[in-house]
Structure formats: C-alpha cells, structure tokens
Design a protein around this nucleic acid. Structure first.
Lengths: 219, 219
DNA sequence: TACTGATTCTAACGAACGTTCGAATCATTG
DNA sequence: CAATGATTCGAACGTTCGTTAGAATCAGTA
C-alpha cells in the first residue's frame, strides 16, 4: 500500500542478529541517494527534475516516491548524511590528539579529504545551502553549527596556548571559505592530492593566524 | 514591433551631445536588472520564475521581454555588468601603486568592498556560476579568467620581491575562497565594516604567504 | 500451490514554467 | 490634430514540473 518513507519505518528491517545490518531497502535507498547526489551536483537542486533523477537511477518516476516523500526530503537526506558523516569522522580523528596545532591540521585534512573524496555530495551540501525550508533546514543547520563550533573551539585553544588575539570568527569563516571554495576549482588531473592541498592550506592558515607582529616591509 | 533587445540597439539612443548619457531605455533596463538581481539572490536562478521577476519589478510578464530576449540573457547581463565593474574599479585603484604588498591589499579591499556594497549581485555572480550555457557562459568566464590572472600576477610579484616559493595557484584560489565565501555568513549587524574585514583577511593571507620557515612548535 | 506484503510500474493530475502574439497605451513629432 | 514608433499589457501557447492513484510484479512464507 502506501509508501513507508514517512518518519520511522519498521517492517522492512528483518530480525537478523548481526551479519547484515543493511536491509535491501536501505541499500536501494543509498543507491538512489548516490545517483541523486550526482544529478543535484550537475544541475543544481532546482534545475534537476524528478525525471532526471528517475533516468539517472534507473527507477521509474513514481517508484522513487516509495523511498522518500518529496524532492525536498531527498535533498535533506543527502545533506544530513553527508554532514553527519564528516562530523563523525572528525571526532574520531581528534581522539587522542592533544596539540592544538595538530588538531587544526587534522580538522583541515579531514574536511578536504572528505570533500575531495565526495565532491558531488559536498558541492550539494555547500551550494544548496539555503533551499531547505523550516523543518528540514533547521536540522541540517544545527549540524552545521555544531561543526562550526568545533572549529571555533580548536582555534580558541590554539590562541590561548600561544597568546594570540585575532578575531576567531573571521579566521574560522575564512578557513571555511578556503576549504569549501575548492569545489569551484579543483581538477583531479591538475591539482595535487588531498594531503598536499590540505597541508598547503593549513600552512597558509596557521602562519596567517600565528605569525605575530608587523608584516609591512620597513622602509 | 519586435523587441530591440537583440544584439545592438540603436534607435532609442537620442542624439544628445553630453548632458544625459542614459536613455530612458537604459534606465528602465537598469531598474529591471536591479530587481532581478534581488530575486535571483533570494531564490536562485532556477528557483526564480519570470513571474517572480515580473511581480518584483512591477512590470508585466510580457513587458520584460521587451528588454531582454530570455531569462538566461538576463542573468548574463547581470553577471557581465557586475564583473566588469569590479575589474574596472580594481584597475583604476591599482594605478600608481607600486609596492607589491600594497597592491594585494588593494585587491582584497576592492573585492570585499564591492562584494559587501553589492551583496546580491555578487552572490548571483558567485553562486550561479555554471548555469550560463556556451556563448553567454564563455564571455563571463573570460572576464573571470582575466580577474584571476590579475591576482596571480600580483602574488607572483610579491613572491619575486620577497623570494617566496609557495604555490601561487593554491594561495590565490584560497584567497578567492575566503573572500567569496563571505556571502554565506556576513551580517551587517554583527560584522565589522568592509575595511576592517578586508584588513583582517589581508593580514591572514599575507602572513600566511610570507611567514617563512618552520611553524611547528619545537618540542 | 496460494497468500501476503514489499516493491515497482504506467498513466495521469493540476499547477507552474518560459515564451510569444497581437492589441492597447504612451510619448513625441509633423 | 493625426501619425508614428516606443513601450506595455492581457491572454494564451505548448511544455515540463512535482506528485499521486491504482494496478502489476516480485520475494518470501505457509
């Protein structure tokens, strides 16, 4: 009968004990999300039609609605999954690392590695930022705020450790700009590997934040 | 009869000698472009309908087509005007300034000042980057490339002067990221004036590029 | 085998889309 | 005033949009 894509979905989860945490439904949904991500990346959220998504994923137009109840919720699912994954990985990587500078380098590396390994998804996340309305938008915005706060915390730690006093807000937002803008220019053929780019951006940012005193050439 | 919006338009330009360089047509077109810019900024190019533009500008749907032949050309007009203005102003400001660092500071200040004074237009320029097709897209892309090359030139001058050797490409693209990302976060109420923000970003960038040697804390 | 619920499909719905046609209005000049 | 071209409009064109109803098919169980 009706589609199960509303809120919680119970019946499709077979009562397995361990070996297969993924149901058929979850796998199929993930496939659709992956294809939809590519289309949204290429044509933009508004520019991509449900018929484009149907063609790309090989499923009929109506068939898609068995997996989600609206185009907007589809975008929400993509954004939430992408964003929570990157936050989750970051937290794991920061475990056990104490040095403030190292932690910022890890932040940058994690962000860029994930960005470049999942360029389409991250472009959809960055570029289709304001399209989700009230409910959906608020939840993604909350994850974004958490991610932002983590970065602010890392930089504040560094500033405390080294006695720096520049504006955290401007510095952090500049860093996000550097990193997120990469989707507009990165070309795998011409640009170096993620580690290298992350290293260069980290150098640029950390020197910029830490280099003290006057910069202007004395005359 | 037909609309004059194709290619060159001659007849509307009255043969004035000096006092009024703007014809009625030009003024009206500029008004429409301004309103359209706001709508594109708020709803995105694909998300904004011609009826939205009609409502916002107070002109009938069909009336708009007297001034441009398609929605795509409208976006093209907005982008070309915005971008060529910023390049033009930059060139004027760089006149007579010799110091390499000063020239980069001027570049950043010019960019951010214009960005914040024309936020909607610049967001439309940054955000609706890939939507223009072949002909229209190529012309805007050419201006963008010129602008990018100017910045590369400025940074190369600085690197030559100071004997630096980091990657120009990564540095310049990082700088563009910092600056362009501002449309996602700037709030006039909470953030400082353009000069101040430009100063802080310039410090961050220039220190990052110029600070030499090792940064890592010695252990 | 027959049954049941999960999954996928064809075919359509009404609304909104970008664009165009031809008539109405306006401003200007003879 | 009449005449002419510039400007604006209402009404519609054909197409595509997101979404849905209801039937067909599939997979698994009894």
């Amino acid at each position: 009968m009706g589609s199960p894509s509303t809120a919680t979905r119970v019946s499709a989860r077979r009562h397995r004990i361990a070996p297969e945490p993924e149901t058929r439904y979850d796998r199929r949904l993930a496939e659709i999300l992956a294809h939809a991500t590519e289309v949204f990346c290429k044509k933009g959220y508004e520019g991509a039609s449900m018929r484009d998504l149907s063609r790309e994923s090989g499923m009929s137009l109506a068939g898609l609605y068995y997996y989600f109840e609206s185009k907007e919720r589809l975008l929400y699912l993509i954004q939430r999954h992408t964003f929570s994954t990157i936050v989750e990985r970051l937290k794991a990587r920061l475990q056990g690392v104490d040095d403030a500078e190292d932690r910022i380098r890890i932040f940058i590396l994690n962000h860029l590695e994930y960005f470049l390994a999942n360029q389409s998804a991250m472009k959809v996340l960055s570029h289709e930022d304001e399209v989700l309305k009230n409910g959906f938008g608020a939840e993604v915005a909350a994850i974004k705020r958490e991610y932002y706060r983590i970065c602010v915390g890392l930089l504040d730690d560094l500033k405390r450790e080294r006695g720096l006093q520049s504006s955290t807000r401007i510095a952090v937002l500049s860093l996000f700009g550097m990193m997120n803008w990469i989707y507009t220019w990165h070309k795998p053929r011409v640009d170096a590997d993620p580690e290298s780019i992350a290293g260069q951006m980290a150098d640029l940012f950390l020197r910029g934040v830490m280099a003290g005193g006057k910069i202007r050439k004395e005359r």
